[in-house]
Every structure is written in structure tokens, then in C-alpha cells.
Amino acid sequence: MNLDFSFITGDLLVNYIWGGLKYSVLLTLVAMAGGIVLGTLLAMMRLSGIRALEWPASLYVNTIRSIPLVMVILWFFLLVPFIIGRPIGAENSAYFTFIIFEAAYFAEIMRAGIQSVPKGQTYAGYAIGLTYGQTMQFIVLPQAFRNMLPVLLTQTIILFQDTSLVYAIGAYDLLKGFEVVGKNFNRPVETYLVATVVYFVICFSLSMLVRRLQKKITIIR
């Protein structure tokens, strides 16, 4: 097989790939931020000791974690226009889907994070007069985040890879950009090879960063 990469030029990257990359990165960041906020709330619900809060949170987390992501993406894309009465577009649909989906995973990470903070810290917060909310905000969650930072970032790397699944609803992301190039230039093998390398380089460098961070955190402790 003769591989020919000569069709890949700067112009091509700007025209086809750059927009897709921006969307993939943005989707990752939005899903991470939304997922962490929602996930933290879910984790606090599951640890609240109040059954009326624990039960729905557990149901949510366990249900989402039992469904393949690509199906959630599809169902959300098909159902939401029905519910709100108008189409919202593949890209916007994916934002909601990923926040909802990732929240379930971040919830489990944050639950472990909160549990990693010794109970005495909560007592100390209460003892100086902080409320439950203040104790969480100023004492427990900052420590939980710090303890869980490497895991949170690793999950974000997985999340970045998972964003490629939006091909199922035709959203224009990084992978889609390469796919279009492959079709337009009739060079699918070369473009998918390049796409693989691009995903690898991004994810591998992020992993390296996480590893360095992990070492740093260990030193601080």
C-alpha cells in the first residue's frame, strides 16, 4: 500500500481540522466543568445520610453508568426535540449529554474524594462554628479535590477520547474533521492514521502532565 500524506497542508488543517479540534476541546471542558459541579452535588447527596437524597442520587449514578455512552448520546439527540418542541442541533445536544453522563462518573470520584478526608476535619469545622455547607465548601471539598485531582484529570482524558462518539449524531468534532478530509481527498487510511496520532499525542502529553502533578501532590503531603 502506498501512503501519501502530501495532501495534508496548513490550509487543509485550518479549513477542516481546526474547527473540529476547537469543538472537541470545548465539549471536553464544558462536560468536565458541568460534570464536576453536578457530580459533586450527587456525591454530597449520596453521602448525606438522608434517604430521600441518597436514593435518587444512587439511582441516577447507577443507571447512567449502566448505559453505553453512545446510546445516551443518541437518545438525548432524538428525545430532546420531542420534549422541548424544536431541534437543538447535534453540537448543543452533545453538551447536555456529556454533562449528564460525566456527572455520574465524576460523582463516584468525588464520593471517594470526600470520603478520603478524615471525619475529624468535619468535626473541626463544626467545632469552630461553621455550618454543614461552609464545612463542605471551605474544609472538605478543597481537600477532596486536591486528593482526587489526578483521577479527575485522568477521567477528563478519557472524556476527551469519548467525545469522538458524537460522530453518532453527526456533530463536527476533531474526528469528523478528519473523516471529511478523508472523503474529500479520497485518502481515508492516511487521514485516520493522522487522526490517531493527533489523539495519541494530545492524550499522552496530558497523561504525562497528570503523572508529574501526582508526584508534586505526594511531595506536598
Partner: peptide, 21 residues
């Protein structure tokens, strides 16, 4: 108002429980 009451009562723990962050 327990937080208010607790703010008037100082407590020192066996394991210090300073906030490490």
C-alpha cells in the same frame, strides 16, 4: 442555632485537626 453555640465553645482535639490545605 448550633453553629452559633459552637462558635462560643472552643475545642481542641487529640489529633489537632488543623486544616492542612
Amino acid at each position: 442555632d448550633l453553629p452559633k453555640l459552637r462558635s462560643k465553645v472552643g475545642m481542641v482535639f487529640q489529633h489537632f485537626e488543623l486544616f492542612p490545605h
